[in-house]
Simulated assay, not measured.
Amino acid sequence: MKKINKEQIFHVIQIGNKGDIASRTFDIFITVTILLNVAVMVLQTYEEFTPIFPILNVIAFVTILLFCVEYGLRIWTADLLYPEVSRRKAIIKFLLSFDGIIDLFTILPFFFLSGFVAFRFLRVIRIFHLFRINGQYDSFAVIFSVLKEKRNQITSSLVILMILMLASSIGIYYAEHEAQPRVFRNAFSGIWWSVSTLLTVGYGDIYPITTPGRIMAILTGFLGVGAVAIPTGILSAGFVEHYAKMKLMNNFARDEHIDLLTIHVTEGHCWNGLKIKDIGVPDHYLPAIVTRDGDSLIPVQDLTLKIGDTVVLAAEAYFSHTY
């Protein structure tokens, strides 16, 4: 009985399980809790609301308490989230995951570190809970899918940007150090200027006054336009490719009179760790194909789904017509 209750709780607290009314209700409840918590954090920055600070503190305490309960439940059910590893490793894996770190940094400052400015700043991290509201749905799934597919290209472009930033910082030091020794004191003192110039924001608080320094600024500005455009172009191309694939699949399905559904298995999804034979699919639909790391897999009954998999469901009529 305990195992059944644990599984029921696990499925309820998983975000994006639209087919389960209890899970859907929990999603709405935790969304309201997150929004209340963020609203309190914002209102506490206004002196005009000082008279109602005691009420806001109570709301903050209650919402944090709810986060603690949710955090405890997620630790308790971690072995169901990561069934391929032992319970201890599953808990560690959750604690080190994005959701686990955000949950921890959300509740920790409230109870133990509220007296330190540096740790009070960590309260801002609770805003990242908002990602969990839509993180399992189509709009965010598309973004995460594109970022994952283009992660190598994006990483390369960021490395190029870091190299340009370091080179321009050293260059502006040699060009401006003698003229502005207090502003450009060492090779790394130009980092702020380098970032503002490469990213074309140009705050103007630090600027070159010598001719070599201004030439360096011109070159850095031109390089910055190209460096910033690289990851933008990569992401744009990724979105175009993704939607082109979706359009091609939909056109194929329409021409062949096939109804298709695409399910992305992400961290926290109720299908993660389940076998094909154990997943619940809509009526009159069957798994048609599973894509994993760019490979297409046949959805055999014993195939275990993992984070990052994409399951394509086709109408049952298509299978009866084909086979």
Score class of each variant (00 low, 15 high):
162 M>N: 12
162 M>S: 15
163 I>S: 14
163 I>N: 04
164 L>V: 05
165 M>C: 15
166 L>S: 13
166 L>T: 06
168 S>H: 03
168 S>R: 09
168 S>M: 09
169 S>N: 09
169 S>M: 11
170 I>L: 09
170 I>E: 01
173 Y>F: 15
174 Y>P: 08
174 Y>T: 05
175 A>D: 02
175 A>T: 03
181 P>E: 11
188 F>R: 15
191 I>P: 00
192 W>L: 01
194 S>N: 15
195 V>R: 00
195 V>Y: 13
196 S>M: 03
196 S>G: 14
197 T>R: 08
202 G>L: 08
204 G>I: 05
204 G>F: 06
205 D>P: 08
206 I>R: 03
207 Y>T: 12
208 P>T: 01
209 I>E: 12
210 T>S: 04
211 T>D: 07
211 T>C: 00
212 P>L: 07
215 I>C: 03
219 L>P: 00
219 L>W: 11
219 L>G: 11
220 T>E: 03
223 L>F: 15
224 G>C: 12
224 G>S: 08
225 V>D: 01
225 V>A: 02
226 G>L: 15
227 A>L: 14
228 V>M: 14
232 T>M: 10
235 L>P: 02
236 S>C: 14
237 A>Q: 11
238 G>N: 05
241 E>Q: 15
243 Y>L: 09
245 K>P: 02
247 K>D: 05
